[in-house]
């Protein structure tokens, strides 16, 4: 039973079994390897993609549940250059091994879009489901706060 969906603005059809995790369809069938299958239990967040605008752990999402949905991966998010959060992470020398960042960026993009002026604790809470094993998080939190701070300055 094929599953139709929109991926990064393009109509795509998966031929995989409907229970196949979305992450495997994206990576193995559509060759979008940005999202990473790390824990496959919804705890690490490295496989986060947007499904109809909501950050979704694609490891726990059967592809059939993404049927007729609009899926955006890190590749789609980055198709017009770096977003604000990506720029701040780059400038802040935040990246180390990098495996968690595709998911971090998806989560933070959505969070910052819905929480324009977060405080530090809110950023941390938003990252509860995005593990980073390298950086100790602080530069990631700083980058998110810098995006918000930059917006506040822009309004002045």
């Amino acid at each position: 039973m094929p599953t139709d969906m929109t991926v990064n603005g393009e109509a795509r059809t998966s031929a995989r079994d409907p229970l196949t995790p979305l992450i495997d369809v994206l990576r193995d069938e559509f060759h979008l390897t940005g999202a990473k299958p790390v824990c496959r239990e919804g705890f690490c967040g490295a496989c986060t993609v947007l499904v109809d605008g909501e950050p979704t752990v694609s490891c726990l999402t059967p592809v059939a549940m993404a049927g007729d949905c609009d899926v955006v991966t890190i590749e789609g998010l980055s198709s017009c250059g770096l977003t604000d959060i990506q720029s701040r992470l780059e400038q802040g020398d935040a990246v180390q091994c990098g495996m968690c960042f595709p998911g971090m960026v998806m989560t933070l993009s959505h969070f910052l879009a819905h929480t324009p002026q977060p405080n530090r604790d809110e950023v941390r809470a938003a990252l509860t489901g995005n593990i980073c094993r390298c950086t100790g998080y602080e530069r990631i939190v700083e980058a998110a706060l810098a995006v918000a701070g930059g917006r506040a300055e822009g309004r002045r």
């Binding site: 919804g42 705890f43 509860t128 489901g129």
Partner: peptide, 9 residues
């Protein structure tokens, strides 16, 4: 409960 992404699902 759990984390934000799991709470959304």
């Amino acid at each position: 409960s759990a984390n934000p992404a799991v709470r959304r699902a």
